[in-house]
């Protein structure tokens, strides 16, 4: 239904203040997932944490790694120089750029420290659910 509350939840979680008003007013956080909308169709897209992550293959600095234990594809913003090769390599369009003087790439990190990612928690319609094992890490459902 394209309420974009998942984007709000993601922005707040990945902000310094972690507070919806302060985060939005004082920072310019970017969402690491994106709700796409066309007519009656809408869905959220985010990193698939691929088994063979093209973004990691293309990362020129070694900032992108895949955790062999959890399978999560992580991006170390400290090492990122903002060349955007990962954006070109990702066939899902799931990597974005931060705002600010020295922008870096930003992507879904599965919300470390949280049991349920912020986007999933924010979804009022249970269109976003967390699944594990052989299923895609975060399943997507067309909420037509």
């Amino acid at each position: 239904m394209a309420c974009r509350l998942c984007e709000v939840g993601c922005k707040v979680e990945h902000s310094e203040h972690k507070h919806v008003i302060k985060s939005f007013k004082r920072e310019k956080p970017v969402a690491r997932l994106l709700v796409e909308e066309s007519g009656p169709l809408s869905f959220a897209t985010q990193c698939r944490h691929c088994d063979e992550p093209a973004c990691m293959f293309g990362c020129i600095t070694g900032a992108i790694t895949k955790d062999p234990e959890t399978g999560i594809v992580n991006l170390n913003a400290e090492k990122c120089i903002g060349c955007w090769t990962c954006i070109l390599m990702c066939p899902y369009g799931s990597i974005t750029r931060t705002n600010g003087a020295r922008p870096t790439a930003a992507k879904c990190d599965m919300c470390p420290g949280r049991e349920v990612p912020a986007c999933v928690e924010a979804c009022p319609n249970r269109a976003l659910v967390l699944m594990e094992d052989e299923e895609p890490a975060v399943a997507l459902e067309d909420a037509a």
Partner: peptide, 23 residues
Amino acid sequence: IGLIDLPEEIRHKKLRGGTCCHE
């Protein structure tokens, strides 16, 4: 272009199949 603009069959393959690359 967004994923939503892709032909339905291709979009479904991408979103449900999951895990990247063309190998």
